[in-house]
């Protein structure tokens, strides 16, 4: 029995080529197939909506995106059908933007409160409550938004309009404050707050404790430590969480349906009772749609799908990166 000399050379990790038994080959094959099928759903959604809506893209071309008219053909044939999603796309973005702008500061303060200000015994409970709120169905947010939030929000709208009416977006052509993008955005802000908060909180909680302690050691206050260490560290988590929230807000259907007045007109006056988003428009028009309009709805669905998918891809990439750094 002799010993080999200790190797001086760097040993690089080997890439193993494993020969496996039949049972394992089958097992791995089945699992792979299952996983592939699951993610193939994304591709199938895209393919089927494109297939069903293709005629619309062919008939209307780019004007599907630039026109705001959504009219079925007249029964007597006097006017042809015309479909365009411009107003709804703008509406989706306006409402989702309002939601995000309102939700982010609150989400940040909830995340900071839970992570750095809340008493320890409360923290666990509060985090569970946050998760519970995240699971409240959107139809219930909708019915609450319609009956409870709207009367309050109309009051706020009036105040905003009274003091800030000289700014174009707060102008109201007709003094009706019901079912406006502002109200829908406020409701959506409440709905997307849990997801933004939970992503942000998770990243904040991974902020390096030694750096926080170092900030304290140099005589910093709690806020000073948060500002110098936690906030910069958690920036990408906040951005990623916000993007996820934006994706949710863009795709929300029922709650928006209930608190937003569907009008096919591009509208930036957020307090006016004019608006809509692609998702709620689909829900509204679906029941009464003929075969051709159904195709238009499929096309609109595809547009919505691609829009939210893009936002979500970006969000996942940002969140994953921030987790990797952390």
């Amino acid at each position: 029995m002799k010993l080999l000399p200790v190797s001086d050379t760097e040993v690089s990790p080997r890439i193993l080529k494993v020969s496996r038994g039949t049972a394992d080959k089958v097992f791995r094959g089945v699992v792979l197939a299952g996983a592939m099928f699951s993610v193939a759903v994304l591709g199938l959604i895209c393919a089927f909506l494109l297939y069903r809506g293709f005629e619309i893209f062919k008939d209307f071309g780019f004007s599907f995106f630039t026109s705001s008219r959504w009219e079925a053909a007249a029964d007597d044939g006097s006017s042809p059908a015309h479909y365009g999603v411009a107003a709804m796309l703008v509406g989706s973005i306006v409402v989702a933007t309002i939601a995000v702008v309102l939700a982010v500061p609150f989400a940040m303060s909830v995340a900071l409160y839970l992570e750095y200000y809340a008493p320890q015994f409360l923290k666990r409970t509060l985090v569970s409550i946050l998760d519970l709120v995240a699971s409240i169905p959107s139809v219930i947010w909708g019915i609450w938004g319609y009956t409870i939030l709207m009367p309050h929000a109309m009051g706020w709208s009036k105040t905003l309009n009274h003091w800030l009416g000289w700014i174009p977006i707060f102008k109201v052509p007709v003094p009706i404050f019901e079912r406006s993008p502002f109200i829908a955005g406020t409701l959506l802000a409440m709905m997307i707050l849990p997801i933004i908060t939970s992503v942000t909180r998770e990243v904040y909680s991974q902020a390096p404790r030694d750096q926080v302690d170092a900030a304290y050691g140099l005589g910093s206050t709690k806020w000073g430590a948060i500002k110098t260490v936690v906030l910069p560290f958690g920036k990408s988590g906040l951005v990623g969480g916000t993007m996820l929230g934006l994706g949710r807000a863009l795709g929300e259907t029922i709650a928006v349906y209930l608190v937003l007045n569907l009008v096919f007109k591009v509208n930036f006056h957020i307090l006016a009772s004019v608006g809509g988003n692609v998702a709620s428009m689909i829900a509204t028009k679906f029941g009464e749609a003929g075969p051709y309009e159904l195709k238009a709805l499929m096309a609109a669905g595809l547009v919505l799908f691609l829009l939210t998918l893009g936002v979500n891809f970006l969000a996942s990439a940002i969140v994953n990166r921030s987790k990797k750094i952390a």
Binding site: L42, R52, F305
Partner: peptide
């Protein structure tokens, strides 16, 4: 494919519910 599957399931959680309805309808 593990990373891709992971990324795609993540993205899938953002599919708007109405789109899921339209897809199954179609």
């Amino acid at each position: 494919g593990a990373r891709a599957v992971r990324f795609l399931t993540q993205a899938m959680s953002g599919v708007p519910s109405i789109v899921a309805g339209l897809f199954i309808y179609s």
